[in-house]
Design a protein around this nucleic acid. Structure first.
Lengths: 159, 159
DNA sequence: TCATTATTGACGAATATTGACCATAACCCT
DNA sequence: AGGGTTATGGTCAATATTCGTCAATAATGA
């Protein structure tokens, strides 16, 4: 029993995979009628699933002939991917954020599940060392986590 | 008398062995009702038994249609395999030995190029932290390296 | 006996759904 | 051209539904 949000998400992803274009134009009204929901549910799906963090950008226009356009980010150049990684991770990350980032990257097939596992083990080990052995402050641990995570991901994404 | 934790652990493992998928979706609420325990007991089982170090990845989502997803990358590591990893790595390893071990594993096609890269980056980062940030003795650094390397390799069920 | 592991429950955080009200752009009619 | 009308999409807050965390307590085992 999938949620409506997930169903609509899949629908939009299908459209993106089907087309040869790098974007699709949606009608909020049509979509909400097709899926039997209030229009603002479409906004919720867009806001929660088609974010820059997941590799999308969105444009829209109101009024007559209005639309919502969903564009797939193109990260062909290794350098673009490295920059993307730096933005994703930022200067500090806690364990929860690490899990979320890795989940995203895996769904986008930028890392395999074994690679994800290695990264989780490595960051957990560092977290454990940082808190029990070294008694570092939470902030210091989060910034060390960010540094390690960026190095790991950059090494994959530059190749 | 088997503890509830063990019973629930076995239940989840059975689900994983039964399904043809690489993962199972659980409902915390359902499970806790079925086994007559508080919901947070399910978290305890997951946290203590289905860790990345043991080769599992866990994703979850709160809210409506929430779930806990357990992904198993490999079946549990047999005892002898784990011992093999321990022998391979030993109690201390320096960078040179790490490279030799990884090279060997890669030639036997037990790890990919990218996986090797991750392990090297992770151990090098720890080495760097250990010497510059915390000024650990070389011996201490080598034993931390060994511990990290063993956890990484065990998670992949190598040996 | 002491350390580790297991159990519980109160409280907190995240996600999904819905609807009322707001903002904007195109169209059409003087 | 101007102004009203119509057709879109956007925002925000309320509510419901899950799951997570943390700390206290109990049980187990070495």
């Amino acid at each position: 029993m999938a949620s409506l949000t997930r169903i609509i998400e899949r629908h939009i992803q299908n459209l993106l995979e089907t087309t040869t274009e790098e974007s699709v134009f949606l009608s909020r009204k049509n979509l909400s009628e097709r899926f039997g929901c209030v229009p603002s549910q479409i906004n919720y799906v867009i806001r929660s699933r088609f974010t820059p963090e997941r590799g999308y950008i969105v444009e829209s226009q109101r009024g007559g002939h209005g639309y919502i356009r969903v564009i797939r980010l193109c990260l062909d150049m290794p350098e673009d991917r490295a920059n993307h990684v730096d933005e994703l991770v930022g200067d500090t990350v806690n364990e929860q954020e690490i899990r979320r980032i890795l989940s995203n990257l895996q769904h986008r097939q930028l890392i395999s599940n074994r690679e994800r596992l290695l990264i989780e083990v490595a960051t957990r080990f560092q977290e454990e060392m940082g808190s029990s052995l070294l008694d570092l402050s939470p902030y210091k641990r989060d910034s060390l986590n960010a540094e390690l995570l960026k190095r790991l991901l950059r090494s994959l994404v530059l190749g």
